[in-house]
């Protein structure tokens, strides 16, 4: 931003490195904990002098992680698909047609963002029980999609308003294409950058969801990773190595996604905040 001396630059680099190390502490502790043998209670600051994956294999079996992975993946992918298709459609109508009705509907979505999801817990639970949807992945898909829908529409609508030229659609309309045809063939492909942002943000949110999963997915056959982890933690408060290994495994997909697609994570957030 302005010119600083080499000395100051070295000092600031040193400061940045100290901050980086500080922020690595929990990850370091997670690794030392997970890579020890079960029953090794040596200090969490030290790596073991041997190599063991015993915690990982035990955790994988005992916490039913394979099934939890499948459940989490299916729920995340389905909810993200719903968000992208129906969220972009909704945002298109709301951004392009500024009728009175649409202004109210848009305001409704923005207002919903403020409602803390947990305050609806009691009746929602009853609704799900009455509908016979308790312990189904279906309800987790719909519920996560509903929770993330307002933000999705908000992001899509902002992008459509600011970057998609109306003339394109009008030209296609003149050629006799239907509204839905125009949307899917012309508009939707242009939404790719914001679709990437929505996909990433919603995937992280749904993959990590615990608040809803713990209410609706208690049966072990439908448990997601977070639910499996929390019951595993309950059984192993003295075997933290197992919990560490399970935590690391559960977080790995998102960590890998983040390291490879870091630009999308950070640019999506930055763009959203500058425009919003």
């Amino acid at each position: 931003m302005d010119h600083i001396s080499t000395r100051a630059k070295w000092l600031l680099t040193g400061l940045a490195l100290i901050i980086t190390m500080f922020h690595l502490i929990p990850f370091y502790i997670l690794l030392t904990t997970a890579f020890k043998r079960p029953g090794d209670f040596s200090s969490k600051w030290l790596f073991p002098e041997y190599f063991s994956l015993e915690n990982f294999s035990l955790a994988w079996e005992q916490a039913n992680l394979a099934r939890a992975f499948v459940n989490t993946f299916v729920i995340t992918a389905s909810a993200a698909a719903i968000l992208i298709v129906f969220g972009s459609l909704a945002a298109y109508a709301l951004a392009r047609r500024q009728t009175k009705l649409n202004k109210y509907v848009y305001m409704l979505f923005v207002a919903v963002m403020v409602i803390p999801p947990l305050t609806a817990l009691v009746p929602l639970y009853q609704l799900v029980v009455d509908a016979g949807l308790m312990n189904t992945r279906f309800v987790a898909v719909l519920n996560n999609a509903a929770a993330f829908m307002p933000l999705t529409i908000f992001l899509y609508a902002g992008f459509i308003r600011s970057t998609i030229p109306k003339e394109l659609e009008e030209a296609a309309k003149m050629d006799g294409a239907s509204t839905i045809g125009v949307f899917f063939r012309i508009v939707f492909p242009l939404l790719k950058p914001i679709t990437a942002t929505v996909l990433i943000l919603s995937s992280v949110y749904i993959w990590n969801d615990y608040q809803f999963a713990i209410f609706f997915l208690q049966d072990s056959s439908v448990q997601t990773l977070t639910v499996a982890l929390s019951s595993f933690f309950g059984q192993n408060t003295s075997q933290l190595g197992l919990v560490g290994a399970a935590s690391l495994l559960a977080s790995l997909p998102m960590i890998i996604l983040f390291l490879f697609l870091q630009r999308f994570f950070i640019e999506g957030l930055a763009a959203g905040s500058v425009k919003g």
Binding site: L108, A146, A147
Partner: peptide, 8 residues
């Protein structure tokens, strides 16, 4: 979706 799972 939002009415069923949040507003209602």
């Amino acid at each position: 979706l939002v009415v069923t799972f949040i507003i209602y």
